[in-house]
Computed example of a mutant assay.
Amino acid sequence: MSDQPLLRVSGVSKFYGTRTGCRDVSFDLYPGEVLAVVGESGSGKTTLLNCISTRLMPTAGTVSYRMRDGRFRDLYRMGEAERRFLMRTDWGFVHQNPADGLRMSVSAGANVGERLMAVGERHYGNIRATATDWLGRVEIGADRIDDQPRAFSGGMRQRLQIARNLVTGPRLVFMDEPTGGLDVSVQARLLDLLCGLVNDLGLAVVVVTHDLAVARLLSHRMMVMKDGQVIESGLTDRVLDDPRAPYTQLLVSSILQV
């Protein structure tokens, strides 16, 4: 793991009038590190994710990203075109609903190929070969390359969305409830696949989830949110095995009782 963080989040807050989305959140994320942000619905975790991935402008705070030249840039001082380029190339964003992260009316191969074209690939044969390879990596048969995502199951759509995001070799991936809405058996396979890819590619990941099992399997560190604030953070195993905040204790015990 590099001694320089990839992402620096400092004092990020988002308010909607009198309502708090998130308040004064700070953390560093290092290359190859997976951070899980957990909490119940309405805790502020998705608002935070949208702020740090520049999908939402925070009310206060800064988010700095270490570019490939080693310099830190304040994401909110970048131009819109520069931010969009980052999101198409250096970053990935895996949505809970795969339809939000896919183009449903074009083929599986085209969904993956579009990202390659965004980084300058123009050779059709190379694009198709790389797309085929990535479909295989996410357990989608090569014979499905010309099928549209609408013909896929929920689990296959999610795996296709992951391939689309990872094909450009991003350094940072945001995931919003990546296993939400899937059957338990499909969730387990998807998690296994994600763990393998994250480890193999050395990705830095911020994953938002209400599922502590997902956090334990995927993440190195955890932040627990409640009412828009971080109430506990630390190494994932420590937080889950020895929770200190009463709310975290309640979260963990409620899972154990299910």
Rank of each mutant, 00 (worst) to 15 (best):
N111L: 10
V119F: 00
D74H: 06
I127D: 02
M78H: 05
M117I: 13
Q96W: 06
G109Y: 05
L56F: 01
D90S: 08
D74C: 06
W91Y: 11
G113C: 09
N111M: 07
A60T: 12
N97S: 14
V106E: 14
R115E: 10
M78Y: 09
R83N: 09
D90M: 03
V106S: 12
G79Q: 11
V106R: 12
R55K: 11
N111C: 14
V106Y: 12
N97P: 00
Y65S: 02
R122L: 08
S64D: 13
R68K: 14
A81L: 09
R122S: 15
L75S: 08
A81V: 13
P58M: 08
P98G: 02
G125S: 12
A118K: 09
L116A: 09
V119A: 14
E82C: 04
V119M: 13
V94C: 01
M57S: 09
N97G: 00
S105V: 13
M104R: 05
Y65Q: 01
A60H: 12
F93Q: 02
G92W: 01
A60V: 03
G120M: 06
V94Q: 01
H95C: 05
N126V: 11
F72L: 11
P58E: 03
R84P: 00
A118C: 11
M117G: 07
R88Y: 01
W91V: 02
N126A: 15
T59G: 03
R71M: 10
T62V: 08
P58I: 05
D74K: 08
L56Q: 07
V112A: 07
G109L: 06
T130Y: 06
G120C: 07
R71P: 00
V63L: 05
D133P: 00
E114T: 13
E121W: 14
D90A: 12
R71K: 12
G92A: 02
V94L: 04
A108G: 01
M87T: 04
I127S: 06
E82P: 04
D74P: 11
N126L: 14
G120N: 08
V106N: 07
D133F: 06
G125F: 09
A81R: 15
L86Q: 02
V106W: 08
F93M: 10
F93D: 02
V119N: 09
S64N: 13
D133S: 12
M117Y: 07
I127Q: 06
F93L: 09
G101Q: 05
A81I: 13
W91C: 07
R71A: 13
H123Q: 15
E114G: 14
R68M: 06
R84K: 07
V94T: 01
R66P: 04
D69K: 07
V94S: 02
P98H: 01
S105N: 15
D69W: 03
P58H: 04
A129L: 02
R77A: 15
R55L: 15
Y76D: 11
